[in-house]
Design a protein around this nucleic acid. Structure first.
Length: 169
DNA sequence: GTAACGATCCTC
DNA sequence: AGGATCGTTACA
């Protein structure tokens, strides 16, 4: 039986959290009830020094939540079409987060947010059951492959090449 | 104001 | 290979 992950779970380096989230459960409760999915793909964004991280551009209205407490959602729209679901990690002011890129049966961050009916209303909310979106501990350890992150070539060769994408295999 | 650009996805 | 589509950002 899996157990809800406390907000303190996220108060650690993004790469550690992203890795340990593989095989964990994301749970969504709405009017239709609770749905649970096993997380299969994540990416870590390591804060203000990580040129692929939105927080590296400094604090803005959009990214402010990234500099706040761990365990809150950072939501943003990309290409005018898709919502991206992230969770803030690390310490206050570090600007770290992880991106949920894929879950069981749903490959791709835009599809994940669409399937879970995530939008900007979740911006800044904590990953607790009362928010309707939370995480539960991993019950089955999975083999994990580590690769470069997707779509971050703009970050330059050093940061684009870092193996901060975690995929179950 | 105006312009440029995505941590993507779908269709051709 | 290219289009969709708009919030965010920077700059004038």
């Amino acid at each position: 039986m899996s157990k809800q992950l406390p907000l303190t779970f996220f108060r650690r380096p993004a790469a550690s959290v992203a890795r340990e989230m593989i095989g964990a459960t994301i749970a969504r409760e709405d009017d239709h009830g609770i749905r649970r999915f096993t997380i299969l793909e994540t990416e870590a964004y390591e804060g203000i020094h990580d040129l692929a991280s939105h927080s590296s551009k400094g604090r803005t209205a959009r990214t402010e939540v990234m500099f706040g407490p761990a365990g809150r959602f950072y939501i943003y729209r990309i290409y005018g079409l898709h919502w991206m679901l992230n969770v803030v990690t690390g310490q206050i002011d570090e600007g770290e987060a992880i991106l949920i890129r894929g879950v069981e049966g749903i490959a791709g961050p835009g599809r994940v947010a669409a399937a879970l009916q995530i939008n900007s209303e979740f911006q800044g909310k904590p990953a607790t059951r009362s928010s309707g979106l939370w995480f539960e501990s991993r019950n089955v350890p999975l083999k994990i492959q580590t690769t470069a992150r997707i779509g971050v070539d703009y970050a330059g060769p050093i940061w684009a090449a870092k193996k901060l994408r975690f995929v179950a295999c």
